[in-house]
Design a protein around this nucleic acid. Structure first.
Lengths: 337, 337
DNA sequence: CTGAAAGCGCTAACAG
DNA sequence: CTGTTAGCGCTTTCAG
């Protein structure tokens, strides 16, 4: 029924190993033989059996990818990670197996120990992620999207959130703003210690200090009511406020509304910068100057890193992608009275 | 390094085949032997090698799942499909391989022909989907989420969109409404012939006719401007309008705004029913009476259907999930003047 | 109820 | 540059 390597070998008048080598390129094959083999492959429609290949080579050419699904995560962004990872994996002739967060450590162990996959991609890594000890003991390389407290022995990649925080402040400083505020992620995010939230705060604060700016930080629940409260408090505490950085995509719109209701025009009275997906930044009533999460790039890079680790070229332990700030309509030079 | 079946056999004092059978249950094993084998398995931490198993049994225990990613699809809904399918697959001891739409037919052929997967799940099926002929020729079962024009020889599952359209109208009819309008999906959806849009229209129209109601249908672009235009036209053409069905999740909010600006209070002056994800229906300013896409249920059922097909119990060609209407605050009894 | 042995289809030494 | 051959680790006949 299905054609196998011996069929191709016979058809091309060569040995099975020659067919194998002609296809893998793992040893020199004369142009002529290779051509005959390739012709036979095409003619017979030969496809190597994945299981047999995996058994003989101890390489499945499959990567595992764990996708998070709990509340508070941005699903479209996760999907971008996933799709770009799959696309990148295909470029290396690999496929991607989908695991849910729910499967937990047992799932990771299972796919690794059964040799179902050659390597693992783990998204949404926590500061003290219970999966880390396990990943370190697995005989297969893995790459984490996010940053744990103790990345030793692991390969991590993420957006450079600290620099992102700095960049927002520098942008505002360059426009003459002197008093700025950060409206941060919901408390859950800090509690979960997904770490990126803290890193933004650090960047924000240090850049403000460096520029001699007055600054405050306000974590904020993801509800419209909380948004209004925070906006009011911000203005009460810093009446001279002319610039804000928002790192809370769920309440961008309510916040903008709140500021307008408080009599602040954007960007005339108040410049706003955000850390959020581009799709959000561009579809709000006021296009937002923002730094996007380069999900596609992260997914792709994660696969590159894995491949490097599998090729013996050890990848750097830590990869921080440079944030890029896109200026849109929500920031302007401070009007000096 | 890794423990194999012969190790377990030696440790338990039985033959490899006995270990295999003890684990698969494919032939009777004395309780005593089974217990010894299981103890050895646990003690040694034995995990059968996936590739070897696939080769010997010609079953990979992996399903392929193609996820769509083009514009206009609701990403969170897709993710719900995916996650529930993975969860369901795990219950059958199967894993799920992720394929992108982009890989197209070649991707499907590849994973099937290399025996990487045992079966396929294809989402976002078009009326005249180019993948259908291919799927029919594959030696592996597949299940489609969505309905093509010619489902012969294939297994399909989807929400019963026709009945969903009817249900919305019946609900409005029951509340005394006599003049209703359907605001449909963006033109792209109709052009792409994803078929579910047409099915909603059919249900809507026939239910309206059956109830002696006056009705009109308006496809609508997914832009706020288009939403306003449609709302105005609806009222111009049907001044007595008191009920609308919206099947266009992207512009739900703009539409509601538009109606309010036109002086219609919801639900006092106008009752609104929608076909949209529950998360949307409940987070709008006015909680919407709506019919949800039961994504999780569809994903799960899709896997059940596949398993049936693989077990020889042929699954029904067509499975239509019954829509459920949830009454929230956007519909009310018509106020008769 | 259990064992022995023959592959599953491919890769990678090992030979030449 | 090519062929021969020995497995990879498991399942499943075939025997008993």
């Amino acid at each position: 029924m299905t054609v196998k390597i011996t069929d191709v070998a016979r058809h091309a008048g060569v040995s099975p190993s020659t067919v194998s080598y002609a296809l893998s390129g793992k040893r020199p094959i004369s142009a002529e033989t290779r051509a005959r083999v390739e012709a036979s492959v095409r003619e017979l429609g030969y496809r190597p059996h994945a299981g047999a290949r995996a058994l003989a080579s101890s390489k499945s050419n499959v990567l595992a990818m764990v996708v998070p699904l709990r509340a508070g995560i941005n699903v479209p962004v996760v999907m971008q990670f996933a799709v770009s990872a799959v696309t990148a994996a295909r470029a290396y002739d690999h496929d991607v197996l989908l695991l849910t967060q729910e499967e937990g450590e047992e799932g990771l162990r299972r796919v690794a120990d059964t040799a179902l996959v050659d390597a693992l991609i783990v998204m949404d890594v926590q500061l003290h992620d219970p999966r880390l000890p396990l990943l370190r003991t697995l005989d297969r390389p893995s790459v984490l999207i996010g940053f744990p407290a103790e990345p030793a022995g692991l390969t991590c990649i993420d957006l450079d959130f600290r620099t992102a925080g700095e960049l927002c402040v520098e942008h505002l400083a360059g426009l003459g703003h002197r008093v700025v505020g950060l409206i941060g992620s919901p408390p859950e995010v800090y509690v979960r210690q997904t770490s990126f939230a803290q890193r933004v705060v650090q960047g924000f604060t240090s850049a403000a200090t460096r520029n001699g700016m007055s600054s405050t930080v306000h974590p904020c629940e993801a509800t419209p009511a909380a948004a209004r409260t925070v906006a009011e408090r911000l203005l009460r505490e810093q009446p001279a406020l002319t610039g804000v950085v928002i790192h809370n995509e769920a309440i961008l719109e309510p916040l903008l509304d709140a500021f307008e209701h408080l009599g602040l025009r954007i960007p005339t009275d108040l410049s706003v910068t955000a850390l959020c997906p581009d799709t959000l930044a561009t579809t709000l009533p006021i296009p937002l100057t923002s730094i996007a999460i380069p999900a596609a790039e992260i997914g792709e890079q994660a696969v590159h890193l894995l491949m490097r680790n599998m090729n013996g070229t050890p990848a750097p332990q830590t990869t921080l992608l440079p944030p890029r700030l896109t200026v849109r309509g929500s920031t302007a030079r401070r009007v000096t009275g």
